[in-house]
């Protein structure tokens, strides 16, 4: 009679023992701990640094790419003749969609300085130079330098656009905005995004790479 409570207690102890060992095993195989500063140092070595990457290509590859670009008036003429072949010859695109990115350059007279953009009269066309909303992937993709397949993580790939746009916002736009006025002659290099199916050439929006006021 007296052995039953002892047996029950033993069983309970075995159950708890197995439970604790199982928990310890799961815990041991679940987490690892290290000093935060050491981890941050490791991350700096392995994490893709988009800003450093952009700094690295800015003066050489990127500048060269944007110097070698299509005159915007010629591009518009080419679109008026054959949209498909213009896309085929001049655009860069990530996938098989209808969106294409073009590197363009041109020179025009400032017709308006608005809060978010500057309008240029280039030949018979009005071109909108963006000065406030520098977003999206136009600069990266139009350059043709950066390929998505080179990046395992799409976040790294997207961070290149962020870094590029940041640099334009910080280095290109402020000095231009502070000086530009109506009647100025402005030279520009930049990128545009166009949809082959819904092509609108009325007022092309240029994300600038360089802006130069010549008078």
């Amino acid at each position: 009679m007296s052995t039953k409570p002892t047996e029950a207690m033993n069983n309970k102890a075995i159950k708890y023992g197995i439970g604790v060992v199982a928990l310890a095993l799961v815990g041991y195989n679940s987490i690892y701990i290290q000093p935060l500063d050491q981890k941050l140092a490791e991350n700096q070595q392995t994490v893709f640094n988009a800003k450093a990457y952009v700094d690295g290509i800015w003066n050489q590859d990127l500048s060269k790419a944007y110097q070698d670009c299509t005159d915007i008036s010629q591009l518009i003429d080419s679109f008026n003749q054959d949209v498909n072949s213009t896309f085929e010859k001049n655009s860069h695109a990530l996938g098989i969609g209808n969106i294409g990115y073009f590197r363009v350059k041109g020179e025009g007279i400032v017709s308006a300085v608005n809060e978010n953009n500057v309008l240029l009269q280039v030949g018979s066309s009005i071109i909108e130079i963006e000065t406030e909303f520098i977003f999206g992937n136009a600069l990266r993709d139009a350059s043709g330098l950066v390929k998505i397949n080179d990046y395992e993580d799409t976040a790294d790939f997207n961070s290149i656009s962020e870094a590029l746009n940041d640099r334009i916002r910080q280095e290109v736009i402020p000095s231009f905005r502070s000086k530009v006025k109506e009647g100025d002659s402005v030279k520009f290099e930049g990128a545009i995004e166009l949809n082959k199916v819904h092509l609108n050439l009325d007022q092309l929006e240029v994300i600038p790479f360089t802006l130069q006021i010549s008078s």
Binding site: V26, N29, S30, Y32, I33, Q34, P35, L36, Q38
Partner: peptide, 15 residues
């Protein structure tokens, strides 16, 4: 990350 303790807890797939 627990900056106040200078501690980083990494997780395995199981964890």
């Amino acid at each position: 990350s627990i900056p106040s303790l200078n501690l980083f807890i990494g997780f395995t797939v199981l964890g």
